[in-house]
Design a protein around this nucleic acid. Structure first.
Lengths: 243, 243
DNA sequence: AATATTAATATGTACAAACATATTAAAACA
DNA sequence: TGTTTTAATATGTTTGTACATATTAATATT
């Protein structure tokens, strides 16, 4: 494993160190309770201060991935079961995994000036056009989900891509954007006229609304995604353990 | 509010600062997006270094209770967003941490013969009575969530417990049941007549429905819980990383 | 040989200082 | 007056340093 950081990169060192630690955690070399290198040595090896390294370590300790013990050292926490991997499946892959036949009803690409919330998330100005992708998908009998995605200009997407391919495949294979982190907010709301029309239901009918914020390995924003699911068409499942 | 720390105490200063910040979060003075005092002033006031104060702030930011913005300041996060690390907190503790006053509208305990689904989950026969707990809770202005819980006989709960105490406290302190794993399924549905009446809304209005399966350390089923949240009263937030 | 002491090791706590960057408000300019 | 520039403010990043404390291993003592 490459154990060094890029000191010239604009990506903060503690973020780089965090990424490296995440990789180390996955390395069998450090599994089964074996200790990581101690803070002082590792900091020296990465050519950063112990404080900066601890900033990275702390985050993983908060997340329960590392366990520190005074006077002993730092080890990787016992593996835990989580729905994380399932969470990462894209819509099409998710449905495929469940054996549900998927029909694409609409697919619309456009370049738009972002609303303030989105520009804010992407950390860009509202006068810079970004790619917007709208999709209406569902079963052969009818649509059950309406997606709206916005992409950061950094992705390099042109809008000419074949969006029938899984999105994260396109980003990774063609644009070398490796998505790593996703934050989601799930709530219920009533369908407005627009959404109701798309999903072929009545205004006011219940909708599962999912906001999704997707980041790359350096925690830079990549995608802002909104999903409107017809009630009873989708169940979001989460598995969590006590931290 | 007393804004000072005990420098002679054996309790670390960053822990004391964290406790103080938790109190500040509950203070109406800092609600509604008002900013906390800035780091440098607050550190000076507490007679600790900025680094130490940030140690405390970081923890609350990670828990989703505080939001920091460069160049602007630090504010208390909007309520109703259940944060990732707080996932495990019970309803009452979550609200308490945010200083939201909670009113218990109804609390009803009964012994019932379980439906097949529940008996199946608990791995018992349908002719064995189990404890059912119904709760209607919300803000002083009105209820926004209706819970139904079923408990495995193994828990030892009698129904005479003081359910105003946090549930997981009762289980752990009084019955030595340590809950460890929780599986949740979140979906949207329309309120039926019964739920609509409880939540003081119209039948057909959108509801965020959460099924929760709780297990102990040996992964034995402990609780089967259903939650009906009024739309817009609750946002479920999840953070996941590519596994 | 059993026990107490000491040393080595690793994390925990805490401070001071400097510079970077985002945001907003005030001042200067056209 | 409207726009640009500048300054003030607040958080973000990073280093260096020092001492405290828990744990374990090595050493000395009884």
């Amino acid at each position: 494993m490459k154990i060094s950081l890029n000191h010239k990169s604009p990506i903060p060192l503690h973020i780089q160190a965090e990424e490296l630690l995440r990789k180390m955690i996955k390395d069998p070399q450090f599994q089964n309770g074996k200790l990581l290198p101690n803070e002082i040595d590792l900091a020296k090896q990465l050519a950063i201060s112990r404080t900066t390294l601890r900033q990275a370590l702390n985050k993983l300790v908060y997340e329960g991935l590392l366990i520190r013990k005074k006077g002993v050292g730092t080890k990787v926490a016992d593996a835990m079961i989580s729905s994380k991997s399932a969470n990462w499946l894209s819509f099409s892959q998710e449905m495929k995994a469940r054996g549900i036949p998927i029909k694409n009803f609409e697919l619309h690409v456009s370049w738009i000036y972002p609303e303030e919330i989105i520009a804010n998330f992407f950390n860009i100005k509202t006068d810079q056009k970004i790619l917007k992708l709208e999709r209406l998908r569902g079963r052969p009998e009818g649509p059950f989900v309406y997606f709206v995605s916005y992409f950061h200009p950094r992705t390099g997407l042109t809008g000419e891509e074949d969006f029938k391919r899984p999105l994260y495949d396109i980003l990774e294979a063609d644009y070398n954007i490796i998505t790593e982190l996703s934050k989601e907010e799930i709530s219920a709301k009533a369908a407005d006229k627009f959404i109701a029309a798309k999903l072929e239901t009545e205004p006011g009918s219940p909708i599962l609304f999912r906001k999704r914020f997707v980041y790359d390995q350096a925690e830079r924003p990549v995608e802002y995604n909104l999903g409107y699911y017809k009630a009873d068409s989708f169940v979001y499942s989460v598995e969590s353990r006590r931290g």
